[in-house]
Each structure stands twice: as structure tokens, then as C-alpha cells.
Design a binder for these strands. Structure first.
Lengths: 336, 336
DNA sequence: TTCAGGGTTGGTACCGTTTCCAGTTTCGAT
DNA sequence: ATCGAAACTGGAAACGGTACCAACCCTGAA
């Protein structure tokens, strides 16, 4: 920049003014400076600008595990919005460990990010919540429930409603013994889905014969739980996998025991992935637009960076009916 | 920092020394400073440190599309290595557009990243190559071939060998009319796989009855190509999908036309995803350890950041045999 | 006793920008 | 012609650190 100033024979401050489109610059000077800039192939240093301006044009982004296709899609949506707004995204995985969440948030603070988009590993980790209360840049939560004091913007899907629709469909088909294999209760989507299941059964006025397998949203939990469910005296006639990894576990278990879908058991999964659509038979799913989820998260952040107030957005989750659900076996309800 | 210095009654420079573990500090001073740091909850500003030190501890990372599960897994591997080395990752998608690659690389330069990990949208985009030649921080390429002048480290999988093994297997089963649906020739893996196919056929000394559908590594191309192949007078008896998206397209086409795998046609896919393992029947795959690929990319970068020379690493790609390949239909070879 | 040298410490010049302040010029208006 | 405001420009002080240099104290050796 000093070189540019010398070449154009103006003060450094004038170069700065030209480059930042300050109103008070003569066209003569502008031309000279721009010519010098081109000649020297000068590009301003982002770092120094950030230091001086107090804005880094970067946002911190923490997710459990980017290698999960669902999360990857969300990330893709968020990244494209942030990118077109000139922001760059600092990606970190928490490996679903709340301690990492905490460390990453601290790290982002030191890095002076302008905002953060987070999908916490746990909503109940006190230290993280306390830390977040002290963060002074805008925060957006993806699919999480956090205390209002944090003044975070939140974007979520209506998992409860999606689950309600899915379960109603199963009930319509005559299923009563319905099992939900899901993750830990410290995650909002998990609680909402469990609530949705209860809602739907209660709305029907039927006795509750559902089973909920709480654990983690992993293939291992999916597989183990499926095995356990199948081994029950009166096994469920329909299983709902609480996530794409869980689904993978279920399918493995079914394959091992030669269980056919939907003849032997009906199957529904939460969240759409390649597998759900391309499986034979295609698997009914509680779907949501994950790209949109990411986009909205980024938009909410930009909104706040532009001076807006924090707000909560609820995006839909809809039930997509496919061939993986069949009528409940005769007698499965009568026996109840 | 000034406050800390005042509270501890030492010079600012001494605070800096204490915090950066300079050897020449008395334990007395160290204690006083650290106490002051704790009391004021002081945390050094990364930005200012970077500006002064000339290192940002951040690396730029460009991939085609993070929402592709394969890429997401690679990214996950790279991120975890970078993170434990104290680096953070600036993620950008090129949307498979070379122009974006170029823009992102420029952006990273302005951001003063310490290094870049790239998986270019095209190896043949001249402007990108020229730009890269001017980049003065270390570069690591993932699964790409670039001119040696660039002095980039490269990590790749041995797609050629993987493909050779896969095709040999098909040949053993009696297949001769083998089709490969793949992406554009400006990507190294694509060229390597095509070469592997030719290798295997030539090694057998059989006449070449293979078909290669060059296009893009997308579901659309997969689906369209499959339709075209099936419509041929003498359609292939085995199809190799050149990527996970292509595979999705193939499966859609098969499902629509009621084609059964492996009875009607044999199927192999490149790169392992949930779908390949969980499909009924499970799909033979040319597999590779993508997490390791990402890890190695990051390690190569760290190596260079530590002063090492650029080098090229070739990781294996192996053929995993599954139920999706059956014997060629009787007469399919005799007719040749 | 003197001196060299190592251990400590403070002062200060940067890193590359932005921005405030003040000075100079221009110009329309009186 | 004179004046004040507006347009323009340069100088310098930040932003929050790091690191070089010089000065100081102290110790062991000559």
C-alpha cells in the first residue's frame, strides 16, 4: 500500500480512501491510484483490515460431524449463502462431544469471528451455555433449543408435526406396536419426535403400545435396538428410525435376520438420504429441506449482522409415503 | 494486554514474553503476569498475532460440493488433523465451477491463509493453473494431477489399479460387454479409471467390447447413460458406475425398467457409501479410505508448513466383491 | 577489583490498514 | 473582493500484538 502511495504520489490515507470508496476523492487522484494499484497488482490485506475495522467477515460453524450426509447438506446451504455475502466459514467438528463445542466457541472468540452458527452436541451442557451467554457476537442455532437469555436466533424443523403425520399413517394401516429408535434426550429434535409419536397415538385415543429406544443417533444403536425389538415377545409391527445412521443400523439388522420390508415389518425413517429413496423398497421418510435449513441459518445470521433482532424460524418437516409401510399383520392389534 | 501489564506492573513486552513462553523470564514475573491474565480473563487477539507474526494458522479448503458424502468424509478427515495441529479450516465450495476455484484461491490469498487444500473442479482450467503458480503458500491437491512446476503436494488413490481389479473380476465372470459411466476427462480419477478398464481388458487379450460414457459425475448422467446403454442393440452385461451420484442414477433407471441386479445385469460402483453396502443386493465397490485421504492431505500440508518438501502420495483403492456381480448371461460372449 | 557475559527487563519500531484531525484549495454567495 | 462552507488531501494515531535492541543487574573469572 505504501508502494502504491509512492507510485501514485499521494498519501497512504488517500489510497485507502480510494479503495474504500470514500466520497471525497477527486477523479484525478482516483485514476492515479487505481493505475498504481493495477500496475503493482496490489491487493489489500484482509488481516490488517479486520484488525482495524473490527470485523473479520468470517463466521464460526460447528457441527457434530461433517461426514454425516445430512449435516453436509445443511452446511452446503449455509456456506453458499455466507459466501455470496462475502463471509467465509470456519468449519469445526465437535465429534458430538460438548467439550469440543466449548473449545471451538472459545477458539472462535479468539479468532474474532463476526458470528457463529452452531449445532450443539448437547443442549444440557452447562458450561457451554454459560460460555455462550458471554459471547458478544450473534449466534444462530440449528435444530436446537436454548434458553432465551442467550438471544440466539434459532432455525428448526417441525419434527413433531412430521412425526405426527408419520405415526398417523402407521395407525391408519392398523399398526399399534410402533417402535421409535432415537438419540439422546438432550437434543431438541429427539424430544420433539418422541412428543410427536405420543401426540399421534393420543389423538387416536388408543392405548399406548409404543416403545422408544433412547440412545444415540448412530448405526450401532440402530442395529442393537432393532435386534432387541425383534427379540421381544410381542415385537413391534413398525419401526421408525430416528435418523439416517440409525436407519443404516436397522437395515443391517433386518438383512441379517432375513426380515422383509414391508411384509414382515413396516419401516419409516427420519430425514431423507439417498438410501431412503433408492432402497428396495423405497423407504417412507419424514423429510425436510436440509439445504434450506442451512440457508436459513445463514440468513438469520446475516440478518443479525445487519442489525436485526434474533428470531426463531420453524421450517416444515413432512411425511413422504413410500412402499416401506404395509398394513399391520392380522391379529397384531386384536392381541393387544 | 496493556491492562494486564499495568496490573502486573511490568512492561507490555514482558507480558508478551510470558505468554509466548520466551525462555528469559523470571518465575517471579511469570507468576505476576499469569495472575493478572487470569484476573482480567485476558485472551490474546489472534488477528493481531497473525498480522505481526505473518502466520494465520488457517488453511483454505476448496471442494466441489461438500454435500457429496464422499467429499464430506474426506473433509472430516482433513479437518480433524488440521484442528489438532491448531489450524482452522476455511471451507468453500466451488460448485464444480473452475471460475469459483479461481475466485476462492484469490480470496484465500487476501485472507493470508498459511496453506491451501484443493480439489479442483478442472485440471485444465488455464487461469487457475496460472494463478496457482503465483501462490506462495504450500498447496495440497486431492485426487488431481497438476504440473510439477506448481510444486504442490498431491494425494491420490490408485483408481487405476482398483478399476483393473474390478474389471478383472467381471471378466472372470465371463462379462465382455462392460460399460463405464463416468465424468469429464479433465479429472484425474476419471482418466485413471478409464485407463484401468483398458488395462484389464488388454491384459486378457480379449477384443475390446467396452463402452465408456463420459459426462459428469452426476445422478442425471448416471440415469441417462444407463437408459442409453440398456437401449443398445447389444446392451452391456455389466455396468460400472463411476461415482456415488452416478450409482444413484443407475439404480433409479434399473428400478424404472425393472432390471434386476445381478440377474439381468452386474453392477459395480466406484467409492463406498452407505447405499453400496446396504443396497439389496450389496453392491461391489472399488473402495478407498476417504477419511485417510483427507487426513493425508492435511498431513502433507502440515509437512510443508513445517518446512518439508512437496511430495506425492498414492493411497490404495481396492475392489470389494459383493453380490451385485453375477456370471455373464450364456451366449453374451459367444455372440461377440 | 575489574570485566565479560548471561539472565531479565523496558522501550519502541513495526505488521498493514482505517480514520480522525487539521490544513489547503475551490467556489458560490454576498 | 471577502467570507464560509464544502471538497479534497496529508499526517498521525490507533487496532493488539511481537520482537529487536539497549540497558540493567548479577555472577564468576582473571
Amino acid at each position: 500500500m505504501r508502494e502504491v502511495a509512492e507510485l501514485a504520489d499521494v498519501a497512504i490515507s488517500s489510497v485507502s480512501r480510494v479503495l474504500s470508496d470514500h466520497p471525497d476523492v477527486s477523479s484525478d487522484m482516483r485514476d492515479r491510484v487505481l493505475a498504481a494499484v493495477r500496475q503493482l497488482e496490489y491487493e489489500p490485506d484482509f488481516l490488517a483490515q479486520s484488525l482495524r475495522r473490527g470485523a473479520t467477515l468470517s463466521v464460526g460453524y460447528v457441527v457434530g460431524d461433517i461426514s454425516n450426509p445430512l449435516i453436509a447438506t445443511i452446511t452446503s446451504g449455509a456456506e453458499s449463502v455466507l459466501r455470496s455475502a462475502g463471509y467465509s466459514m470456519l468449519l469445526m467438528n465437535s465429534e458430538n462431544d460438548p467439550e469440543f463445542d466449548e473449545a471451538h466457541i472459545r477458539f472462535f472468540q479468539a479468532r474474532r469471528v463476526d458470528g457463529m452458527i452452531l449445532s450443539l452436541a448437547s443442549e444440557r451442557h452447562q458450561k457451554t451455555i454459560e460460555l455462550l451467554a458471554q459471547v458478544d457476537v450473534p449466534i444462530v442455532m440449528i435444530d436446537r433449543d436454548v434458553p432465551a437469555e442467550l438471544e440466539a436466533s434459532i432455525v428448526r424443523n417441525d419434527h413433531r408435526n412430521g412425526m405426527r403425520a408419520a405415526v398417523s399413517h402407521l395407525l391408519d394401516l392398523g399398526h399399534r406396536r410402533i417402535a421409535l429408535i432415537t438419540g439422546a434426550l438432550e437434543l431438541w429434535p429427539v424430544r420433539e419426535r418422541i412428543a410427536g409419536l405420543a401426540d399421534a397415538v393420543a389423538a387416536r385415543g388408543a392405548p399406548d403400545e409404543t416403545t422408544t429406544m433412547v440412545g444415540s443417533l448412530s448405526a450401532e444403536h440402530g442395529e442393537r435396538s432393532t435386534e432387541q425389538l425383534l427379540a421381544m415377545d410381542r415385537p413391534p409391527t413398525a419401526i421408525i428410525a430416528g435418523g439416517n445412521q440409525v436407519l443404516a443400523g436397522c437395515i443391517v439388522a433386518f438383512a441379517r435376520r432375513g426380515i422383509r420390508v414391508p411384509d414382515d415389518i413396516s419401516l419409516i425413517t427420519c430425514d431423507e438420504v439417498d438410501l431412503s429413496k433408492l432402497h428396495a423398497p423405497p423407504i417412507s421418510a419424514i423429510a425436510r429441506d436440509t439445504v434450506q435449513l442451512g440457508r436459513t441459518a445463514a440468513e438469520l445470521l446475516l440478518e443479525r449482522l445487519g442489525g436485526g433482532e434474533p428470531r426463531t424460524v420453524l421450517l416444515p418437516a413432512t411425511f413422504v409415503q413410500r412402499a416401506s409401510c404395509g398394513p399391520a399383520p392380522i391379529g397384531s392389534t386384536a392381541a393387544a
